[in-house]
Design a protein around this nucleic acid. Structure first.
Length: 505
RNA sequence: GGUCCGGUGGCAGAGUGGUGAUGUAGCGGACUGCAAAUCCGCGUAUGUGGGUUCGAUUCCCGCCCGGACCUCCA
């Protein structure tokens, strides 16, 4: 019997996962608010949940994965108003970008991707139920959830109402009965998007959207609800309050899986700090699979510091795996047990342990064991890795004239004309192609740059290069240029001196 | 101020009441024209002070440091 354990935020403990219905696992992930490009933190969330979904699909016959799109939001309204366009026009681009970016990370699409704008009837019905149950009230065109009516309010996030009040950073609207009451419905002025409701034209609060969409597509009770840990309060606390009060007896989600936040250079990403990493920009620098891999190199419940150095390491590790796979082109991933990786994931998604197991399989492959390569490929399916062939990964499809030059170098090398061989290797590197000689006299060539480059070292080399240029030291200029180019740097000569750029990893 | 989480080798990052994974970097070696890859070997870590225990990195308490949440946030 396969035993999956997950850390449940609700109980603050690792516990055995017991499905409500083993024939159909139901999972919900809070999706994006579509007003801008996704950032790298969104990516961690989606990648982790993707691994969980893949694992569940391996264990259970059916998994229903719902991830919503929040397309009713004041930030969206602001943009719509500023541009004088509709919500649809504002959200269209961000939704498409989101799908593109998440696709580049090889995350599986959800089975259902509901939008808030398509669930007004459900939203209104839940609010009506809450009013009828005495858990919500109308005040000055707003409908508010009465936290005092719910004895369980605050238990999930571990806060008491007093604690929450003590740190409150917002002004409390006069019409609230309780400072902690939150908005279910708010009125819209004529210039704002709005929908007709029993309480006038208005729009729903954020939290109620997720309650409505999970209810519609997964029912009152479902198995797993995921999100970033910054959503524990207030978003998930409020979802629970709404759903459990609207449907007495409901437990809402059984297991709550929250990933820790991601840091950039040791600090939480925020627009005010200016360290906001847009996923799309990161994907310009490194392949999606390297980004995905970096996000699974640390456990989802520990903070992860996202850095360029980490990206280089992640890509280097993937290179090693692809080399192991490339060594055994005949290896098939069918019917190959990967217990080491499977067991690691069953233990609360221990992806670092799973990666350690991947290296064991790679060791076997390098030792000549095709089963090792097969296991590597099979494990990759479970983790969403190795989505491309080694040939594509290393950029082995080279133009014929490049290949001719490489052959010419091989001849020169065989004739021990090493000056010519090195010159040709350098010329190929200038064009973005890198050669590795094999022990049998053959070679491999691809457009993937080596991983040797250290960014600080590159800065120093370029400084030296500029010094050498100003002092006219031709021999040194040549040596530095070669070293940098062979490490995968593109150099440009500008009026301000040499500038360097790393090739896409 | 309140609540919670964490501090493991140069860096990244797991695990465990009984000689501390894995990767990367470093050093030495094999191989190699050089480089790369691969292989072999070496070295370096459990923040700090107590307690419990035959034994603690692991459990408990204090301290120091870091981070998150306290109604925008993945």
């Amino acid at each position: 019997m396969t035993q999956l354990t997950l850390y449940n935020t609700r109980t603050r403990a690792k516990e055995l996962f017991v499905p409500l219905d083993a024939e159909n696992i139901r999972a919900y992930l809070c999706g994006p608010t579509v007003y801008d490009r996704a950032h790298i933190g969104n990516a961690r969330n989606v990648v982790i949940f993707d691994i969980l979904i893949r694992l569940l699909r391996r264990i259970y016959p059916r998994v229903t994965y719902v991830r919503n799109i929040t397309d009713i939001d004041d930030r969206i309204n602001e943009r719509a108003a500023a541009r004088g366009v509709s919500i649809e026009e504002v959200t269209q681009g961000p939704v498409r970008w989101y799908h593109e970016d998440m696709g580049l990370l090889y995350t599986l699409p959800p089975d259902i991707e509901p939008r808030a704008t398509e669930h007004l009837p459900e939203i209104i019905e839940i609010i009506e139920r809450l009013i009828a149950n005495g858990h919500a009230y109308e005040a000055e065109g707003h409908v508010l959830f009465a936290v005092a009516s719910d004895p369980n309010y605050g238990k999930f996030s571990g806060h008491t109402p007093d604690e929450l009040l003590a740190g409150a950073r917002v002004d409390v609207a006069a019409y609230k009965r309780d400072a902690g009451d939150f908005v279910l419905w708010k009125p819209s002025t004529p210039d704002l998007p709005g929908w007709d409701s029993p309480w006038g034209r208005g729009r729903p609060g954020w939290h109620i959207e997720c309650s409505a969409m999970s209810w519609k597509h997964l029912g009152q009770d479902f198995d797993i609800h995921g999100g970033g840990d910054d959503l524990i309060f207030p978003h998930h606390e409020n979802e629970i309050a709404q759903s459990c009060c609207a449907f007495p007896g409901s437990n809402f989600a059984n297991v709550w899986v929250h990933n820790r936040m991601l840091l950039v250079n040791g600090e939480k990403m925020s627009k005010s700090l200016g360290n906001f990493l847009v996923l799309h920009d990161v994907l310009e620098k490194a392949p999606g699979e390297a980004v995905r891999f970096l996000l699974m190199r640390s456990h989802y419940r520990s903070t992860l510091d996202f850095s360029d150095a980490g990206l280089v390491e992640a890509k280097a590790e993937l290179d090693r795996f692809y080399r192991a796979i490339e060594k055994h082109p005949e290896a098939t991933d069918r019917q190959v047990p990967v217990m080491l990786v499977f067991d690691a994931l069953l233990d609360d998604l221990n992806t670092p342990a799973a990666i350690a197991a991947l290296h064991k399989y790679a060791d076997l492959a390098f030792a000549g064991n095709a089963a090792g390569a097969a296991a590597l490929k099979a494990a990759g399916k479970l983790l969403g890795l190795f989505n491309t062939t080694p040939k594509e990964w290393f950029g082995r499809n080279v133009p014929s004239e490049i290949y001719e030059t490489a052959l010419e170098r091989k001849d020169a090398r065989n004739q021990k004309d090493y000056d010519k061989a090195d010159r040709l290797r350098y010329e190929l590197a200038l064009q973005g192609f890198f050669i590795e000689d094999m022990l049998d006299g053959d070679f491999s060539i691809g457009s993937r740059p080596p991983n040797k480059l250290d960014y600080e070292q590159a800065d120093k080399f370029v400084d030296d290069l500029n010094l050498a240029t100003s002092s006219g030291n031709a021999a040194k200029i040549d040596r530095l240029r070669r070293a940098l180019v062979l490490d995968g740097v593109v150099l440009t000569d500008t009026p301000q001196g040499w500038k360097w750029k790393r090739l896409k990893l």
